[in-house]
Structure formats: C-alpha cells, structure tokens
Design a protein around this nucleic acid. Sequence first.
DNA 1: CCCTGAGGAGACGCGTGCGTCTCTTACGTT
DNA 2: AACGTAAGAGACGCACGCGTCTCCTCAGGG
Lengths: 203, 203
Amino acid sequence: MSASTGRTAAGTGRQIRRYGAELQAAIFEAVVGQLYEHGYQGVTMEGVAAAAQTGKAVLYRRWAGKDDLVLDALRHFAGDPGKAPDTGSVRDDLVDLLQRMAASTTTPTGSAVRMLLAGTRQDPEFVRMVREKVLRPRTELIAEVLDRAVARGQARPGTSSPLVARTGPALVLHHLASEDAVISREEIERIVDEVLMPLISPR
Amino acid sequence: MSASTGRTAAGTGRQIRRYGAELQAAIFEAVVGQLYEHGYQGVTMEGVAAAAQTGKAVLYRRWAGKDDLVLDALRHFAGDPGKAPDTGSVRDDLVDLLQRMAASTTTPTGSAVRMLLAGTRQDPEFVRMVREKVLRPRTELIAEVLDRAVARGQARPGTSSPLVARTGPALVLHHLASEDAVISREEIERIVDEVLMPLISPR
DNA sequence: CCCTGAGGAGACGCGTGCGTCTCTTACGTT
DNA sequence: AACGTAAGAGACGCACGCGTCTCCTCAGGG
C-alpha cells in the first residue's frame, strides 16, 4: 500500500542538477572508473548511470550504446601523453618516459591498452582508436628521445628504429603479465640499464 | 498430444555416446574452441555443452563452474612448450622459439595469455596457472638458449638475465597490441637481428 | 510567473547465461 | 538378459544487463 516514493526522500540533500558539458564530464569519469575497476566487460550502462548519479535515459540520449559510450570516454581521456623529457641524458629521459607509462597501466587508459591485448573480437573502431591515441603517441615520445640521443652522439645511428622504440613499452607491458601488479622504479631502471642502454649506446 | 520427442529423431544417425576420458577430451576441445573464438567472457556453459554435443549436467558433474572448467581445460592444453632448439646458432634458435610463440598467440593458450594481460579482476588461481604453465616455461626455453650461447662464447656473459630473456616474448606480445593480427616471419627476424642479437653479442 | 525541455530515477519487457533438475536412453557389467 | 550408472538433451527459475519508456522535477526563457 504505502506509496513507492520513486524519489529518495531520505537524503539530506537538495540535488544539484548538472547539464551539458558538466554532466558529460561526470559520466565520462564514471565510465573510466568502471572500466578501471571491472574491465570492459564490467562496464554496464546501469552501473555507469548509478556511478554518475544520473539516469540511463541520459546516457541513451547521448550515445548509441555501451561501445559508443566507452569509446567516447576513452577518446576523451586518452589524450595528452605529455611532452618528451629532455634532460640531456638519454638514460634519464627513458626512465622518465617508462615510469609514466608504468604509472598509467593502472589508469583507465591502461585498462584500454590491456583490453586491446585481450580482445579476440573487439570493435575495430575501438582497437584503432586505442592504437592511434594511446599506444602510438607514447612510442613516438620514445622515438623522439632516441632521435635526440642520436643527434647528440649518445646513441648509435640506426638506433631509433620503431622496433627499438617499442622495446621499452613492450617490457613494461610484459611485466604486467609475468609478475604481480605494480612495476617498481628499480625494475624500470633495470629495463633501461640492462636492455635499452646497451642496445643503443655506441660500441 | 504428439509426443515431445525429446530426442532429435530427425538425423540419420545413431548417436555414439562417449564416456570418461574420451568425453572429457571432447569437452576440453570445445572449451578451448570457444575460448579462442570469443575470449574468456564468450565461453558459456551452454555454448560448451552444445559444441561438445553434450548436456550441461555432464559439465556440472565434473566441474564446479565456468572458472573451474576453463582453468582445467587450459591446464590440460597449456602443456608442453617443446624442447629448446639447439642448432648451434643462437640467432636461429631464437628465431625458432619466437616463431613458435608467435604461432601460439592464435591458439587457446595464446588467448589465455591475453586474458592475463587484460584482466583487471581475474581468478588468482587462473592467473597463477597461466604464469606458471604458459609464460614461465617459454621464457625458460629462451634462457636456456641464451645460457648455451654464453657457454659457447656467442654471447656476452651476464646476457642471460631474466630481463633479456623476457625481451623477445615481450616484443612478440606487444606486436599483438600495436599492429594488426599475425606477426610475420620477417618481423620476428627483425626482432632477433635488431634487438636481441645486438643486445647479447660480444662487443 | 508559467512553460518547455532536459535531468534524475527507475520500472518494464526482452534476451541470455547460470546452475539445478528431470527424463529418456545407451552402454558396460554381472 | 537384466540392471545400474552416466550420457544426451533441454526445461526451469533466477539474476542481470540492455534499451525503452514513463514520471516527476528542476531550471531558465519568454
């Protein structure tokens, strides 16, 4: 009998209602939160709506469905990989870059990369986007650092092959698989000192 | 009224009924098939039962649930990474090993590794198993090859660090993420010639 | 000050997967 | 030849996520 309130009369609060861009930002944040916590499969429209404190209708008014939403959220967040460091020491530059990469493995952006690895049938648009917006820019930063090192004579010419630029990221990523969780600073320095530096330094 | 047949009277065939080990093998095959085609999330008990031409009861009589089943199937298939090649040339040995690894990225075993990469919350038992039974043995083969190379004087001592052993696999795996699909023989040779060999060969 | 449009919340119907249960039937054993 | 066990098949109830739809309600423009 008692009325189904339909509105949580309980809470203290007035509710502030968000519109447009502000609302969208909150939704994106919710998406990447879910993504980070439960992986792609764990992202649900219902979960996102709840986390963003909004209704599903709002989501469907803006996006066609889950794929579209997640894609858009990632596109929004993947963004700026930062500028390439230029300390004058290749070694330090590389450590810095890989450190950043490692840090981002636990972020939504990192999740995206891992989804990429995982996917047997992923939305091709999604795959493309992650490659373009996440992976490539970061590899390019490394290439940039290597180029500078070559110019400075700190590295052999020819060192700056795409393959070499990929080696650092590959090892950081691989660490995720072969060891537990977080990669330590020491481990990163070991990657640089034991693998990258010997690989590039002049004979 | 008309009997619900309950049995497809249609087909030509008698049905051969499988038991015990034979049945189990068929089920495992179905599991890895599903795994390969749709990824971990795409494996369903119903799908497996159908693919194996059996009933769900049979599955639940043997395994506690999906996790248990998949884990067991992988454990069953992950098996033998083969013996380390010993052609006398480190270079050729490495190419051979990485080639094998690359080939297995499209197999169920490969899917398992990718699931590992992907997983934000995976069954820890599963993670441990893939590390132990899939990743580690293969890295050890490489270490073995490197050790022999050092012994032969084809590689600098100290070359056989775990990190160096990981570099090849890491690059192969990373290729999955950064490029499309299959890794070519040429690409593998490039990895060996441009990265691994310079890294290990005596100065 | 009222009206319109979007936001917050969630009910609803649909499909799908899980895990259980039932029923019939083939096979190996005695 | 009779029997018991497990296989093959799938119905069933439950939970959950999707995408739609409805119902307020808040805010801002006329």
